[in-house]
Design a protein around this nucleic acid. Structure first.
Length: 826
DNA sequence: GGGTTGCCCGTTTTT
DNA sequence: CGGGCAACCC
């Protein structure tokens, strides 16, 4: 068997036993009260709510108004709400009201007194989604919404581990590691083992480990079928080491928040049984993005009452690269033979053209469950999708921003518009243009608040103040600000740590240290001890303020004269604000380790720019989809690494993008794009060809005067391009254009390695990949080399044709010179 | 111990 | 092109 968590195997003693127990479970269970008291003792606030609720059950239930909320549902939605018992899969297409179904379903279950709020488990993927669901549920049923077990998979996992983690050797105050801590850890392990970090990167190693965890596999469960050849097959060894290290630190990573509850359930059937009995109804959002570990968790928990309702859309599965298994949703009916399937196909969001185009696109994928989205107003098709070609990425950004500016100035709302890109680097251009145009905007998913260096550092100070055994926090800040602690000192500390089995912090007392270093470290110890006292007496925000000031950390940034330092101090002040909302530092740290971005909600009327991935679940009146170029979208790496599977996922991403729009879609691509400082010339995305002609309005660059019927300014705009590049591409030799659309991917390093000069940027030389592959396709050894000519002086080789070189001299002149007339200049 | 240079490499990223 | 990091030098 692939996993020891394979729940269909009866020989698994624990599971078999719990199965037997569960078959005896009834909908009313005298154990409920006991279970409740077990589950609600740590969080005082929550237990208060739950206790008062449980005492007032009949009252509260009666006070729930008649279910008028059912009247707001269409027949399919209503069916999805009323089919409460047994396994149910709700195939919910984009914009068909799945959140409404989920929240109404919870309300309905409670109203029908099929379960008490805390007997319902509702899991989402993002904090944002759970927040949204909680507030909508509150509108339906009031304060009871807070008693429902509603949260992300990871938040649920943490809750379970805090309570029962000790049964698998995890102290209740374990810390949750962020990705940087994880990487640091695995890197250290690999270096200690003498691995060439360059060749086998810690990030890749972590990814392999993560995939195992996603599959619910502990090191001892990794069979040959799951083995990895990475790093000469040593990945498993490092997985084992890594887990040991985590345990020694009393830490878990994100994967563990799913994996360890599984391990716990496997090891301690009584714990599993308690949860199985508690959760009478389980609801899952975004089921298409669950991984195997999540699936196993759900299956185990649902064995109690068998009321599992999964909502998802296989066409929107875009996270397989992170371990999500579309298979979970595709084979739902096989796994649960008595499962009902309900399709939600009435789309309340988009126009006919948008839905047609999206449907035609996604129809190119195989292995779908299949569904057809129908618009509410089938008579009005709306506007066709615009597909537009631009000279280059710069012009694309400029004109999209210009277009947005027009509607903005005409009184349109920015909040109804989004620019959705494939890769984060694309946001840079838009940011620049939006800034110039003075349009309020928000880039989502760029820098996460809690991933910023200064925030991580501040949190590390708090962590260490709370627990001096937190070696990772220690490592992060021991020399920040500089205290003169270097490699030598750290090695001494680590050695002492290893010998005496004590923390790095405690090792200071024993380690052999040079006097100056000892003095520095001892005052650090005093500082942290004082910080610890502060945590006992002061409020969290004041504690943080005092620690960061007394440690000299704030001063460190104040002294720093780099342009970001001011922002860093602002961020720390923002952190104090966040801390105001917390009773104690422990709960803040937990929050900080689970929440990735605080500022997911836009303030005021702002345009949003974000990746397609980040846009899932959102909707906008107008959506811009720039950069539809083969190599960028679909992304070359997805194609290279996963072939047709990768292509299909990219196509689903395109589907997600299009279906975000209510009214208008603007797809575009550029003939040239700057990548890694060099120009490349991609071809239009193959997805564009998959859009039905009757749903789109295609505007190629060369024929703008024929196609543009709406605005007379358009022509002028094309010619008033503001950059050298625009001008250059506008006037360049037309003989190249015939080659422009050759279906050759140019999104790789090879294709940009040869090129010729733009002719405008004299120094340093800028390269432009040709529209065609250079006649001699062999790689050139001379391009980019600095050379000296007797009369023209220094220059850079920009093109090579046998012995004939094109050289851009520093004077700005471009000349053809035979190689023998120049010498290499070093 | 700390600053500097030179080389490598570059998706997406709910938690 | 630019960030990150390791080797290298003061």
């Amino acid at each position: 068997m692939n996993s020891l968590f394979d729940i269909d195997e009866p020989e698994n003693d624990n599971t078999a036993q719990s199965n037997a127990d569960l078959n005896n479970a009834t909908s009313f269970n005298p154990l409920d009260e006991a279970v409740e008291s077990i589950f609600h003792t740590t969080s005082s606030e929550e237990s208060r709510i739950n206790d008062s609720f449980s005492r007032k059950v009949p009252d509260t239930a009666l006070r729930i108004p008649a279910p008028t909320f059912l009247d707001e549902l269409n027949p399919e939605q209503r069916q999805a709400v009323e089919t409460t018992d047994g396994p149910l899969l709700v195939l919910s297409g984009a914009g068909t009201g799945k959140t409404k179904v989920l929240t109404t379903r919870i309300a309905y279950i409670i109203q029908q007194r099929k379960a008490l709020p805390w007997q319902i488990l509702a899991v989402t993927f993002t904090n944002k989604a759970s927040k949204e669901m909680k507030s909508r549920l509150e509108r339906l049923i009031g304060g009871d919404a807070f008693s429902v077990w509603l949260g992300t998979f990871h938040a649920i996992g943490i809750k379970i581990l805090r309570k029962f983690g000790d049964r698998i050797g995890l102290a209740p105050n374990f810390i949750v590691l962020g990705s940087d801590d994880q990487e640091r850890l695995i890197k250290k392990l690999m270096q200690e083992a003498g691995i060439d970090i360059k060749k086998y990167t810690p990030a890749t190693m972590l990814e392999i480990i993560q995939r195992w965890k996603d599959k619910g596999l502990l090191p001892e469960h990794v069979s040959s079928a799951h083995q990895s050849s990475f790093c000469n097959g040593q990945a498993l060894y490092f997985y084992r080491q890594y887990q040991q290290k985590l345990r020694a630190l009393n830490a878990v990573d994100f994967g563990d928040l799913l994996l360890l509850p599984l391990a716990l359930f496997q090891q301690d059937a009584s714990v599993l049984r308690q949860y199985q009995q508690q959760f009478k109804y389980i609801l899952v959002d975004e089921y298409q993005d669950t991984n195997v570990a999540q699936y196993l968790l759900l299956r185990l928990l649902a064995k109690g009452h068998n009321n599992l309702c999964c909502v998802g859309d296989d066409d929107q599965s875009i996270y397989s690269w992170r371990g999500a298994e579309v298979e979970n949703i595709l084979s739902f009916q096989t796994i649960f033979p008595d499962a009902k399937i309900i399709r939600l196909e009435r789309n309340y969001r988009s126009t006919g053209h948008i839905l047609n185009a999206a449907a035609a696109l996604i129809a190119h994928n195989t292995g779908r469950l299949g569904k057809t989205l129908k618009p509410i107003d089938s008579h009005n098709q709306g506007k066709r999708l615009s597909v537009k070609e631009y000279f280059n990425g710069n012009q694309e950004a400029e004109q999209i921003v210009e277009k947005i500016n027009e509607t903005y100035r005409a009184g349109g709302l920015l909040g109804e518009t989004a620019i959705l890109v494939r890769a984060t680097f694309q946001t840079r251009l838009f940011e620049e243009k939006l800034l110039q145009a003075g349009i309020p905007y928000k880039i989502i998913g760029g820098f996460k608040f809690y991933e910023r260096e200064e925030i991580k550092d501040a949190v590390a100070y708090l962590r260490l103040a709370l627990n001096t055994n937190d070696d990772l926090a220690f490592l992060r800040i021991v020399n920040k600000p500089k205290r003169g602690i270097g490699k030598q000192a750290m090695e001494a500390l680590e050695q002492t740590t290893a010998e005496k089995h004590i923390s790095l912090f405690d090792a200071i007392t024993w380690a052999p240290l040079r006097p100056a270093v000892r003095k520095a470290l001892e005052s650090f110890v005093t500082l942290i001890k004082r910080a610890h006292e502060l945590t006992q007496t002061e409020k969290p925000a004041d504690t943080a303020k005092l620690i960061l000031e007394e440690s000299g950390y704030i001063q460190m940034w104040q002294m720093d004269k780099s342009p970001e330092s001011e922002g860093r101090i602002e961020n720390i002040n923002e952190l104090y604000n966040v801390l105001e909302d917390f009773e104690d530092i422990e709960s803040f740290i937990e929050y900080a380790s689970l929440v990735t971005d605080t500022d997911e909600n836009t303030t005021g009327d702002q345009l949003v720019v974000m990746t397609l991935h980040a846009s899932k679940g959102l909707e906008f009146k107008t959506v811009f989809l720039p950069g539809w170029e083969d190599g960028l979208f679909p992304h070359q790496k997805a194609l290279d690494e996963s072939g047709d599977i990768g292509l299909e996922e990219e196509r689903r991403l395109a589907y997600v993008g299009i279906t975000r729009a209510k009214r208008e879609v603007f797809i575009s691509y550029a003939q040239s794009r700057k990548l890694y400082g060099q120009w490349i010339n991609p071809i239009p995305s193959r997805f564009i060809n998959e859009l039905p002609e009757e749903d789109i309005d295609f505007k190629p660059l060369c024929s703008y005067n024929h196609f543009n019927g709406t605005s007379s300014q358009s022509e002028e705009r094309y010619h008033s391009s503001s950059t050298f590049e625009d001008y250059f591409f506008d006037t360049r030799d037309e003989s190249h254009s015939a080659e422009r659309h050759r279906p050759v991917s140019r999104w790789d390093r090879e294709s940009v390695s040869s090129g010729f000069e733009t002719g405008f940027d004299s120094s340093p030389a800028q390269f432009v990949a040709p529209f065609f592959k250079s006649s001699s396709n062999k790689k050139s050894k001379r391009i980019g080399k600095r050379v000296r000519h007797e009369t023209f002086g220094l220059g850079t080789v920009v093109r090579e044709e046998g012995e004939r070189l094109d050289i851009r001299f520093d004077s700005g002149e471009l000349k053809k010179i035979m190689a023998r007339f120049v010498e290499l200049a070093e």
